[in-house]
Design a protein around this nucleic acid. Structure first.
Lengths: 217, 217
DNA sequence: GCGAAGAATTCATCACGGTTGAACAACTAC
DNA sequence: GTAGTTGTTCAACCGTGATGAATTCTTCGC
């Protein structure tokens, strides 16, 4: 059926743009940027490939549009920074894991992360976003001489969780529960934010360090 | 000059395979996997594109060959794990930064990291490598009930440094010196390896935590 | 030396990727 | 009702990696 769709505009007013966006969103998240071709996507929607270019300019434009409707990290970050600074490490880790663990959010974020690695422009976007929305504000709240260093390192550690657990899926991180992660990574993040900075001089740092001995249980 | 390179085997015994590999190495590191096309590479070497397929099977085969001659992380890791466990965090960070900061090593590693994000098979390779060569052995040396969790989290933070400083180039991490990074990240890694694991119960964890107060200085 | 086998190299071609310009159909405004 | 705008397809372009056949050089058995 629907043997040969004639040329020209379709009758009625089906919102084809939205359809394309929906299907693209789904497939990008499932198959990644390179896995989706314009033609196959167009076929999925039941439309010519040129129409996608017509609406979104290019494949990258389409991808950007998909990201735009999927990812809004700024709100979450603002919420995090509003709360008590003392508990920020735990809350940050828990929020991050919760957000990334639910597919509706995690998939878009993951494809955004992957794309950012491949595409320098997208990387710059994320870089600036992290800076304005997270690092600078965090540094302000910490205060002190090395606030920027602490904030940067904090973000690095958080980024490491994303990278190893979600992008690379390294065990055991990939299958640890949110609680387990909070318990092991939380204290390290506390150290980064509030702990002493190591003595610059060349000392092995043996006894009398800030934390020592096997874990209590 | 060299107006039209005739068909067939070249006279003499020029090691074209090695030439291709050398140029490919250089260009892959500078321009990334997608930035290098078979034809442009072949033109650079002064050879037909089909010859690359002849020697390396495919573009990915070529890339794998380039990685093969560039990256040998196992040795470095072994050295790290041999030393004193107490000083492992500092040594690990310092070694990592030193290795990645010198272009001859850092560039190949960076392109490997980028490729691993895009290509699931390469990601699996790195994942297994990290596991066998680092996480398992580190967990053995730490000992204790949650050794695996600690080791995984340790690697996660190290990976975060790579991700944010080298792949994403987020400030201020990207321009911190090795010493600065060791000073801020080192203590956190110590906490991960040796510090207490946070109390599972729901407590804000306010006073009496393992590390508290502003930095000395 | 000679001729056959094999290795190295190019050429022509393929299928497929995203993108583009022209043709055409429907809807909107006057 | 006709003119203009918007939506849609078609055909083609050019660049990608890959492949098979044709060609030239090297090597080895005799």
């Amino acid at each position: 059926m629907n043997s040969s769709p004639r040329r020209g505009r379709r009758p009625g007013s089906p919102d084809v743009r939205a359809q394309i966006l929906a299907v693209a969103r789904d497939r990008f998240h499932r198959e990644g940027y390179d896995g989706v071709t314009m033609r196959s996507l167009a076929a999925d929607v039941g439309v010519d490939a040129a129409l996608i270019s017509y609406y979104f300019g290019s494949k990258r434009g389409l991808f950007a549009a998909v990201l735009d409707v999927s990812v809004h990290p700024a709100d979450v970050l603002a919420k995090l920074l509003e709360g008590d600074l003392e508990t920020l490490p735990q809350r940050a880790v828990r929020t991050l894991v919760m957000v990334w663990d639910q597919p509706e959010m995690g998939m878009p974020l993951l494809s955004a992360a992957r794309a950012a690695v491949a595409d320098p422009e997208l990387a710059a976007l994320i870089r600036r976003g992290l800076h304005r929305e997270l690092i600078d504000q965090l540094a302000d709240r910490i205060g002190g001489a090395d606030a920027r260093h602490r904030a940067g390192t904090f973000v690095g550690q958080i980024g490491g969780l994303v990278f190893t657990r979600y992008v690379l899926a390294v065990e055991p991180l990939a299958s640890m529960t949110a609680d387990e992660i909070v318990r092991t990574l939380g204290p390290a993040l506390r150290t980064t934010l509030f702990g002493p900075v190591a003595i610059p001089a060349r000392r092995p740092h043996v006894a009398g360090g800030s934390a020592r001995g096997p874990a209590p249980r």
